[in-house]
Design a protein around this nucleic acid. Structure first.
Lengths: 105, 105
DNA sequence: AATCTATTTGGCTAAATGACCAAATAGATG
DNA sequence: CATCTATTTGGTCATTTAGCCAAATAGATT
């Protein structure tokens, strides 16, 4: 079953939800459990509205869900399979890049 | 050991290398083994120069390596741990998004 | 060495992204 | 019900990204 163009695009959107330093930071923090927006704002260190937009993107891509309790909104990761991936990414990110500017050959 | 800002940025770059429909398509195709640029051009269906730039991005982020043999340059995935991740992404991408425009609460 | 072929690079433009500020909303509290 | 607090939304601007075309490169073939 070859993935349709639409399927690929939706998968890419999920990945894109993690493909930004602030959003990755958020995802990694949420691996230890849910946090409210204000916590995440402190973590990221950006304007609250900026953080909120990152969270909206992540939520709409299906990576996060949220729940309001009291005055706060708590976000958490949908999927715990992210852990393995982040370990994989970390392994890749450690490697020095072989060729900075030129193609390998 | 809390990850430094620089580390997070490099991890995000690795993820970003997969966070585009064409690049994801390339990565998935390469899970079955190496392919030359011309194959990938056919797969993606874009201008050769566009594909080449995607490949450069992926290579520089550490996700791909390449090797020239004969006239062609063959690209392959550096890490096979991507397979599990892509399965995870697929699972997330399948879920209907709970709330399209409004926050959950 | 002249030419072919595959790929990359440079330049350009349109579109998407990310940041901030200000204003709106929604629910809790007095 | 008036207000406070947490969060989202809308607007704007600068930056980045993705696409194509044309030109450069590098290695194979004649």
């Amino acid at each position: 079953m070859p993935a349709t163009k639409d399927t690929i695009t939706r998968r890419a959107a999920v990945i894109k939800a993690l493909a930004h330093p602030s959003r990755l930071l958020i995802a990694e923090a949420l691996m230890d459990g849910e946090l409210c927006v204000c916590d995440l704002k402190d973590l990221v260190g950006a304007d609250m509205s900026t953080v909120s937009k990152h969270l909206t993107l992540m939520r709409e891509s299906g990576v996060l869900v949220c729940e309001k309790r009291g005055l706060n909104i708590y976000y958490r990761l949908v999927c715990d399979c992210l852990g393995d991936f982040l370990r994989c990414v970390d392994k890749l990110a450690r490697k020095p890049v072989k060729t900075k500017t030129k193609a390998c050959c």
